[in-house]
Design a protein around this nucleic acid. Structure first.
Lengths: 128, 128
DNA sequence: GGCAAAATTGACTTTCACGTCAAAGTAAAT
DNA sequence: ATTTACTTTGACGTGAAAGTCAATTTTGCC
């Protein structure tokens, strides 16, 4: 019977505040239904929020996220717009690939830090 | 003769503003030498800036970056501190792994968007 | 139907990471 | 020596993404 989520259910699930979800609505990222003035979130909204938060984690701005959502809702019909979009997609992809390289490098760096810690601990442990 | 870099040389190389580098100095991330009041950047500073910017790209805050730099400069000597550090490292790593998953998912999504664009372009192209 | 808990709106505040200017000091080249 | 290009400090401003607070509704529940 088409489950609805309340706002706090979702804030608990995703670890965000109600303010955040309202903010996303103000920004036009989500459009929960209303019963009176109270927001009712459907599974589709919930899914969208998941994607928004994923975008947030990797550093997309609200308007970038909005753009992506827009594309899914109604992809541009004009050739120029399509080409522009493809260009942006390509830039974003390069961006993300760079970010992944950065992450990989940082991960190995963190491994080094950890190993240094372990060695250090061993030293201290032996000394006492 | 130990090459020095001027501030604008580095801003050009890294595509940041002088304000940014001065900000990083204010925040204690770098410590360029001075001739009079003018900053002189050494290769070590340059390298550090590279790391700072990498950290920035993957979404580390200034103080997170500062922490990491600190560890390299002088790793904690106390056991408690070491354990705390290792815990943080482990958290960061989980964080980065999640981020990588996010990126991978988004990359395939972008591929889909691109393909949708291409199909759309083909349709339009055929129609005209 | 009454009441505590939850939700809403609106306004104001905050944090981060710089941007922007102004005023003044320096360096380099002609 | 003067112009021209950099550089510095300091103060204030800004945009993004919420946080916080207060004053109302609204709901869920017995």
């Amino acid at each position: 019977m088409n489950k609805y989520y309340t706002i706090t259910e979702l804030t608990r699930e995703f670890g965000v505040s109600t303010r955040t979800l309202r903010f996303y609505e103000d920004e036009g990222l989500i459009h929960p239904e209303r019963r009176g003035r109270t927001r009712l979130f459907r599974p589709a909204d919930r899914h969208l929020i998941k994607e928004i938060l994923r975008g947030r984690r990797i550093g997309f701005t609200i308007s970038e996220i909005r753009e992506i959502i827009q594309v899914y809702k109604d992809p541009p019909g004009e050739i120029g717009q399509l080409q522009l979009l493809m260009q942006k997609v390509s830039e974003k992809r390069d961006d993300l690939r760079q970010k992944r390289r950065d992450i990989d490098e940082t991960l190995t760096e963190l491994d080094n830090v950890e190993e240094a810690c372990l060695t250090r601990l061993a030293e201290i442990g032996v000394g006492t």
